[in-house]
Design a protein around this nucleic acid. Structure first.
Length: 243
DNA sequence: ATCCTGGAGT
DNA sequence: ACTCCTGGAT
C-alpha cells in the first residue's frame, strides 16, 4: 500500500521533470507527442512498426539506442528492414549493415533467425505473433536465441502492447539506489515489484520504463549526479552518498 | 566467470 | 586513454 503510492509518486516526479519520452508509438512529424493519461489507450501499431520495434529491441542489447538507430537507418536505406528482405539478406551483408550495434555477427544471425521464426511459425504475419495470448507468447520468445527476459518483455510491451514491465540495468540501478530492491534481486522479483504495485496498463509501463532510461542516462548514472536529481529528496543515495 | 566488440562522450 | 551503453549465451 505504501509501495504503490511511492512508485506512483516516482512516476509523477519523473514525468513532471522529463515529460513524455515518445518511444512507441512514435509521433508523426509535425504532431506533438501525446501525453500519457491513466486509462487512455495509445493507438494501435501497424505490422511494420511492430517488426521494427522487435528489430530495434535486439539491436540495442548492451548498446546505445543511438547506435541501434544507425543500424535501423542503414537497414532501411538499403531496403532490408522488411521482414522478408531481412531474412533473404546474406548474413555477411546483414552484419555489415548493423556494424554499429557492436556484436554484429551474433545479432545478424539472431535477426535472421527471428525473421525465419516469424515466417515459419506465423507465415510472416507480425499481427499473428503479437496477437497471441501473452502468457503463451513470452515463453515462445524466450525460446529463441538472442531473446532473454528483458528483450522478450520489451517486445511484449512495446511491439505487442501488453502490460509487461521491462527490467533493465538502469531500472536495477535506480531501484537499488532508491532503496526499493537489493542488488541481488532477480529479474522476476523486480518485475513483480512493479506488477503488484501498479495497474496493469501497457501505456503506463511504456512511459515509466522510458522515463527510467532517461533518468538513468541523465542523472542516475554510474557516477550519479545527485545535486540536480528530481528524486533526490526520496533517495538515500543523494543524502548519504552511500554505495 | 568470459565472449561478443562500435560509437560517442569525457 | 579511458567510460558507458535500453544483454544474452556458454
Amino acid at each position: 500500500m505504501r509501495l504503490k503510492q511511492r512508485l506512483l509518486a516516482i512516476y509523477q516526479n519523473l514525468y513532471t521533470s522529463y515529460g513524455p519520452q515518445g518511444w512507441w508509438p512514435t509521433t508523426p512529424p509535425g504532431k506533438t507527442t501525446p501525453v500519457y493519461r491513466p486509462g487512455a489507450t495509445s493507438r494501435r501499431l501497424n505490422q511494420r512498426e511492430r517488426w521494427e520495434i522487435m528489430v530495434g529491441a535486439l539491436l540495442t542489447q548492451n548498446t546505445t539506442w543511438h547506435n541501434a538507430e544507425l543500424c535501423l537507418e542503414a537497414l532501411s536505406a538499403s531496403g532490408s528492414l522488411d521482414l522478408r528482405e531481412l531474412h533473404d539478406l546474406p548474413l555477411e551483408q546483414l552484419s555489415g549493415l548493423i556494424r554499429p550495434a557492436r556484436y554484429f555477427n551474433q545479432k545478424a544471425q539472431r535477426l535472421h533467425d527471428l525473421a525465419g521464426y516469424v515466417l515459419e511459425a506465423y507465415g510472416g504475419s507480425i499481427a499473428a505473433l503479437t496477437g497471441r495470448p501473452p502468457a503463451e507468447l513470452r515463453p515462445e520468445l524466450l525460446a529463441l536465441k538472442g531473446i532473454g527476459q528483458e528483450t522478450a518483455d520489451s517486445i511484449l510491451l512495446y511491439a505487442a502492447q501488453y502490460p509487461f514491465f521491462v527490467i533493465d540495468a538502469f531500472t536495477r540501478r535506480i531501484c537499488h539506489r532508491l532503496g526499493l530492491a537489493a542488488v541481488s534481486a532477480s529479474y522476476g522479483e523486480l518485475q513483480d515489484l512493479f506488477a503488484r504495485a501498479l495497474p496493469a496498463d501497457a501505456d503506463l509501463f511504456n512511459e515509466y520504463h522510458a522515463l527510467f532510461v532517461r533518468h538513468a542516462v541523465e542523472h542516475c548514472r554510474p557516477k550519479p549526479q545527485c545535486d540536480s536529481c528530481c528524486l533526490r529528496k526520496s533517495c538515500r543515495y543523494g543524502v548519504e552518498t552511500v554505495d
